[in-house]
Amino acid sequence: MVVFGQFLEVLIGGLLAGVLYSLVALGFVLIFKASGVFNFAQGAMVLLAGLALVRSLDFMVARGIPTWAAIVLALMFAAVVMAITAALIQKFVLGPLVNQDGLSLFMATIGITFVIEGAGQMIFGSDVYPLRLFPTDAWFVLGGIFDGGLLVSKIDVWGGLIAGALVAVLAIFFQRTKTGRALRAVADDHAAAESVGIPITWIWFVVWLVAGLVALTAATVWGTKLGVQFSIVFLALKALPVLIIGGFTSVPGAIVGGLIVGAGEKIAEVYLGQLIGGGIEYWFAYVLALAVLLVRPQGLFGERIIERI
């Protein structure tokens, strides 16, 4: 029972950590679906959103504004920052690059990453800023069944709830609103969507804005967990295998992929790491993704890749 309890604890911790990867991966999927851009800058956007949030929050709390009001204002401020970023990216980078091939757009987003990292840290500072939006202690559950109970971190549970809510909101947005439908039309075929009167530049702005807001959501959770700091950028790299496993074009895929990666790497670290030396969390997700790719090149939930000559 102790062995099983430990396994369950690792599994739950992994699954919940995986939800947080999904949060970052969601931003990727949204942009890739709507504009075919593989957005390397998602991690940098999480960093920017986090920095804007935590710095404005600290600023207002220091001025004596009540905490709840300061949180709301800071969230709004961060959202505005993300909107401005989205507008700038759309206007100055993606607008002129329309109809380029995927590789050029991908490289452009790496350029955007650099600009966001540099500008964000120059404006908001480059230290580690602790963010306290959610409780960070842990629950011990099922103490009756398992000796000492299972350790479940509260922040991970919050992350899970937020991710669930976010997916629900996004689903409603995509299925029920006019803009959401336009987004799906653009995703299917840019030219056809434009020819029926969908304003494509506006749609792309909306996509980047939504991705920015998803980044903000991810930043609240990750920032609470790790503190807002530069290393958040590397989260984006962890989200890539999540995307591969789930498929680039699937929102549910991002969630499931995140769960698989989170659980897989924690279990591997605990049970396999002892055998071949620690730290395999560092690459396990990628090798897992590689294995999935060999079996299903489009990921678990991705649209079938049909090739024409």
């Binding site: 295998p241 990628y286 790719l293």
Partner: peptide
Amino acid sequence: YLAVATLA
């Protein structure tokens, strides 16, 4: 997809 695989 391959680009991400090479990250492995």
